[in-house]
Amino acid sequence: MLQFLRTRSIYHLKESDPQAFVLPRLEGAAKVALAELLYDEFGGGRPSQLHAALYGDALQAAGLDREYGTYLDEVSALTLAVSNAMSLFCLHRRLRGAAMGHLAMFEITSSVPCRRIAAGIERVGLPPAASAYFHEHVEADAVHEQVAARDICGSLVAAEPGQRTEVLLGAATCLVLDDLAAREQLGTWLGTETAA
């Protein structure tokens, strides 16, 4: 569990920072919807609820270091690829559709797993602050997946039909990389690791 929390620190301690770069690259309804989602990610006006800080609290509660980059050298290339794909998409205007497709798929595949991760954290006896981040994401991402898929990606594609393939590229990239990283992680735990 501690290794899992360290691995996830690569993205969660910078949660939503990549997507914030996309805001000036969207227009109209898609921009409004992304701003609404980001407001929630960045605490909804309450510093204690900043999602990246909630993850820091979770690390601390588990006896780990909350400083960004502490566990950088121990994570795999695939873990870095998951995070780097987001940065690549989010930092280029021409890839803004892929950035939002990635975001939507990330949110769509988050709520149910977060419920199971929170249960796992509690099962091994870590304190409530360690699971609070994941409990928050059960409800938050049940909202965000609807906002991201319908109001961000839907509005973007309605306004710019040419972005449809970009959105799908981002969504597919999210699924492929997360699947590869998860298989690698499970292989490590189960002792069946094979070269990726």
Binding site: E139, A142, V143
Partner: peptide
Amino acid sequence: TRPVVAVCRCRKTSRGPWCDGTHKS
């Protein structure tokens, strides 16, 4: 506690009244 909320419609959520994604199952 957020500007937009997802309220359960399938009546199977474990966190009512909020959606917890259970409808996917």
